[in-house]
């Protein structure tokens, strides 16, 4: 069986500051994995490196056993927070752009999602609330037919109604054979949909476990377990 996503001895520094140290991770199958850690722990950097948006790390990253950047990028759909888009663009124009750039963009699926999430395609990016913007990001990210989906903090600063809608879209439209990694620093809201959790702390991965195994072994909620990792020793992160 090929490993869907594999990271081996990844080391990354920026401005002489160590961001990631000896990160190794192996994810297989069609799981939903929670990438957890405090703000600044290195979650976003790890995702950007995996997606190929950030470069120059030491170590190996492979998707379906392929390591070269172009192949990797074609297999990964990463929730880019629309950073490069001009704010006067309409939703429909952003979609057109995605459709041109990504040959695996499934317009029919995209249309189902924006109908479900009640997005108005004529709206400009500058007029979108944080929740609506995130709904658009999720629709664009999931509309691609990829092997790996990376969602970077899709729930931060979003009201609970939008959150539920987004979680429902994920369950409904995540392709059955794909792997999904969702990063968050607040776990309780997504805990029921996670197969596994990966915790980044002090620049490296300290835990990689199945969610139901944690519940079974410790009798703790995922949130309590996650917080207990920070309990005793003071982290300097």
């Amino acid at each position: 069986m090929t490993t869907t996503l594999k990271v081996e001895n990844l080391n990354y520094r920026r401005n002489l500051k160590r961001i990631l140290a000896d990160v190794s991770l192996s994810l297989t199958g069609n799981k939903i994995v929670g990438l957890l850690g405090e703000n600044g722990a290195g979650k976003t950097t790890l995702m950007r490196l995996i997606a190929g948006v950030a470069k120059n790390a030491k170590g190996i990253i492979s998707v379906n056993d392929k390591t070269d950047l172009a192949t990797r990028k074609s297999l990964i759909s990463y929730s880019n927070p629309l950073g490069g888009m001009a704010t006067n663009k309409r939703i429909s124009e952003v979609k057109d752009f995605y459709q041109q750039v990504y040959p695996d963009f499934d317009e029919q699926k995209y249309n189902q999602m924006i109908t479900f999430l009640k997005l108005d395609e004529s709206q400009r990016l500058s007029a979108l609330s944080k929740g609506t913007r995130e709904k658009l990001v999720i629709s664009l990210t999931l509309a691609r037919q990829a092997s790996v989906y990376l969602l970077d903090e899709p729930f931060s600063g979003i009201d609970s109604m939008s959150r539920k809608k987004i979680i429902n879209s994920i369950i409904q439209w995540k392709p059955a054979d794909s792997l999904m990694v969702i990063s968050d620093h607040y776990v309780s809201e997504i805990a029921p949909i996670l197969d596994e959790i990966v915790v980044v702390k002090d620049n490296t991965i300290v835990v990689h476990k199945a969610a139901d195994t944690i519940r079974e072994e410790s009798g703790q909620s995922i949130e309590d377990y996650y917080e207990s990792l920070y309990g005793e020793a003071d982290s300097n992160d």
Partner: peptide, 16 residues
């Protein structure tokens, strides 16, 4: 998948 959506859980968990 329908069960997963209505219970708001993961498809794999329903399968288990």
């Amino acid at each position: 998948r329908q069960l997963a959506v209505s219970l708001t859980v993961n498809v794999n968990t329903v399968q288990r």
